[in-house]
Simulated assay, not measured.
Amino acid sequence: MYDGNVQYFTSGHVPRFVFAAIILISGILFTVVLFFGQWLPLCSKWKLMKWTKNTYYNGFMDAYHAPFTPKHRYWVGLLLLTLITHNLITALALDNSLPVLSAGVLSVGLISWKLLNNRLYKNKFRDSLETLYLLNIVCLAFGTSYVKDSRKDQSALANTSMTISFIIFAITLSYHFYQFVLKKTNTWLKIEDIVRNLGVDVADRRANNGREMYQPVVNANDDDELLEVVDDYEQRDALNPPYTDGAMEEADPDRYITPPIIRPATRPDQLRLSYMDELAPLTTEDYRPAPPPTRVNHRPAVTCTEIGPIHNKV
């Protein structure tokens, strides 16, 4: 609150003035850097702007520029400038209606700028979420102006606006808590495994519910033929009992018609041939190309050289 009895640069005012000056200067520099952050590297050729190539500076700016498209990385700085403008109007205005109109007009301007420039955020959901916040401010501002002119109660409008903002904030906070905290815990991983196993069990049950999945589609005239086939299988099994060493499934005509049982070609007591047990796995040597044929040199080899006597004839 303003107090005209406190004089400037007295013992009680100097610390307040120093801290206020530090906050004001740092806030202005921070806002300017965020607003012009995407254009400052273009001036790195100047000696005074070489600090824009520093890795620490680039890492600091990436934290604010990462959610936005390369063309609209000024958006955080623009939001801060809008907030500073609204605070100045609120501090200097003599009437209470002017700050309310300022909030509504500035919010409408931001929404219009977003609509004219397509998408500012890389993620559509974040862009829509911020637009919803701005629309909430617009409705609250102009609704408050209407209620004030009509001399009605503003509590219902304010409570509705605050409830919408709180619900959106709670959803955002819950999403970030799940994404960056809960999703990485061992308890949540165990819960995901249990849910995944339940889904697999349900799928297996549906696949094994054979009356509807395994019931053959036949005509009414084919019933006699199917019964004859079943009788033939039963008579053959009675004459030649199947081997009980392997895993076999008995036919159940009441449930569904099973395919014929495939018996092995050899008896369990019959020995296998020796060549059937010799394994010859493929190796990398089998894929190498054949070596080129050796060249045969048909030229006669020189074994020795004879040098005869030299005769000088006059």
Rank of each mutant, 00 (worst) to 15 (best):
C43N: 03
S44W: 13
K47T: 08
L48N: 09
L48S: 14
M49N: 03
M49C: 15
W51K: 08
W51A: 05
T52M: 11
T52R: 07
N54D: 13
N54C: 13
N54S: 15
T55D: 08
Y56N: 09
Y56V: 07
Y57A: 07
Y57P: 00
Y57F: 15
N58Y: 05
G59A: 13
F60P: 00
F60C: 07
D62I: 02
D62W: 15
D62C: 11
D62F: 13
D62V: 00
Y64H: 11
A66F: 13
P67R: 09
F68H: 02
F68G: 04
T69C: 05
P70M: 13
P70D: 09
P70F: 13
K71A: 15
Y74V: 03
V76M: 14
L80C: 07
T82N: 07
L83F: 12
L83G: 08
I84C: 05
N87R: 09
I89L: 10
T90H: 07
A91G: 06
A91Q: 07
L92G: 01
A93W: 01
L94S: 11
N96S: 10
N96K: 10
P99E: 03
P99N: 04
P99S: 05
V100M: 06
L101M: 07
A103I: 10
A103V: 11
G104W: 01
G104K: 02
V105N: 01
V105M: 06
V108Y: 02
S112H: 06
K114C: 09
K114Q: 14
L115Y: 12
L115G: 01
L116F: 12
N118G: 12
R119K: 14
L120V: 15
K122S: 04
K124Y: 06
K124F: 05
F125W: 11
F125Y: 14
F125K: 12
S128W: 10
E130D: 11
T131C: 13
T131Y: 01
L132A: 15
Y133M: 11
L134M: 11
N136G: 13
N136T: 15
N136I: 14
I137N: 04
I137D: 02
V138M: 06
C139I: 15
A141D: 04
F142P: 06
G143W: 04
G143R: 07
Y146M: 04
Y146W: 08
Y146D: 06
V147S: 11
K148W: 14
